[in-house]
Design a protein around this nucleic acid. Structure first.
Lengths: 252, 252
DNA sequence: CATTACGTTTCATAATGTGAAACATGAACC
DNA sequence: GGTTCATGTTTCACATTATGAAACGTAATG
């Protein structure tokens, strides 16, 4: 991830090298190992590591080996997804749009909703379109249902309790049992459909995008008027999602 | 998380302050905001941020606002859980052991197994005991089943395909449908039982421990000879897990 | 006991990071 | 259109900081 070895501040180059060396270890690492891997003098490495320990970026186990520290988890929890995903997904979204001739959306989960963060549209007038920034409840979108599958049954029940699963159309799954069953099917297949559940006349096919940790960080979907939607697009949606995931470092 | 304001290296104090200021923002932050919040001169803050951007710890959005960067995610994925959890969990484990008079285990998930990372035992000879470091498949342990619930149905099916769900006793759930049903029940209840599924004669009650991000990072369980296990312990196990989770920053 | 290896602390100083000033850019106002 | 204001970005002299080497401490081994 060191795109350029030399930033304006040398210490930061050095601490980045130390953190990367730690990330590359299977377990903990000794000072001597880290010093050798980064090319830093032992006393320099020792002191930088001590500073990183102070701030929780690095920790030491009971045998004295260095490990990545818990503060990284807390900071990572605050990293906004969608930042890199959008740029990385754009080419694949355009490819997918060109294959199916329909609108392609990129969404991220925020709490109990999916947020539309990117969109590419076909060159036709009659199309489904969501404004970037608009939101949709999880249970009525293809990708939202997949996200609930990722979160598990307990989290889905909590979501249902919180939101009461409002119905948007006669097709909306507003019964927890039916929703859990649908989610189970979608999760097992690796894609989900929205059959006029959010809005009458609108059909959708969605798949998840995963990052280097395997976490589902975004959703990719094709939205079309229901009469134009083709199930043959499923493999294309999955292929585009797979490519974006690979770009994010996901390894199947 | 700045336990001490002054580490041996000033720049590292300063970058930590900048990252924490970014973590405290709802969205992105301007240079002026960050400079004000950290007390750094604007040109100093600018240069440190530039170095952090180079290494992916910080990013900028299309409007020029600063955000926490993706490299934090990649490093966080390598943080070994169990490091802090063990020390934090120890007092609650001892409390739980004293309440129920049985062995209490702390486990973390590694791939397709739970690993025993800490254990407190009662003062009696006939007891269930697992060596620290020993491993057990997910589907035959109470906590492992909860972890599968966290991972979702698709991940559980993948696990089943990979491992083929080997049976350890006649009670083992080695059929995917039965396992998914058990997992669904456990996840919904917030605790799980192991009814002689790993080993005949051994009963277990388990609950999950969550961290500040809400992720299930460890499992807490009571293991006992089956004839001694009491369902009345469920609330105690859950209480102990709740306390450890609170210590890890989990907010219900 | 002596040697080796590693970690930790001390210290003189080279060089690095700093804050101020200059410069660049865009928006708002007259 | 020109001026002012606010913010960001670059340059520069130099004080302070981070550095590498040496000394010191500790544990393990022969």
């Amino acid at each position: 991830m060191n795109q350029d070895k030399h930033s304006p501040i040398q210490v930061i180059d050095r601490l980045a090298a130390l953190l990367d060396a730690l990330a590359a270890q299977d377990g903990g690492a000794s000072l001597k190992i880290l010093s050798a891997e980064t090319g830093l003098h032992p006393s320099t490495a020792f002191r930088i590591l001590a500073a990183l320990i102070q701030h929780g970026f690095v920790a030491r186990d009971e045998t004295g080996l260095y490990l990545l520290g818990p503060h990284l988890l807390q900071l990572a929890a605050k990293v906004r997804v969608g930042l890199d995903v959008r740029a990385l997904a754009r080419p694949e979204m355009e490819w997918l749009r060109d294959q199916v001739g329909e609108t392609v959306n990129l969404t991220v989960r925020q709490g109990d909703e999916m947020v539309y963060v990117e969109r590419v549209t076909p060159n036709r007038m009659m199309r489904v379109e969501q404004l970037i920034g608009s939101r949709a409840p999880l249970h009525v979108t293809a990708v939202g249902k997949l996200m609930l599958g990722e979160a598990g049954a307990a989290a889905t029940r909590d979501y249902a309790k919180r939101t009461r699963l409002p119905a948007y159309t006669a097709n909306t799954r507003h019964d927890i049992k039916a929703l859990l069953e649908d989610i189970g099917i979608c999760s097992a297949r690796g894609y989900a459909l929205d059959n006029e559940e959010a809005e009458l006349g609108v059909g959708c096919i969605g798949a998840l995008i995963r990052d280097a940790t395997g976490a589902a960080v975004a959703g990719l979907s094709v939205s079309a008027p229901m009469e134009r939607r083709q199930l043959a697009w499923v493999t294309l949606v999955q292929e585009a999602a797979r490519r974006v995931s690979a770009r994010l470092g996901f390894a199947e």
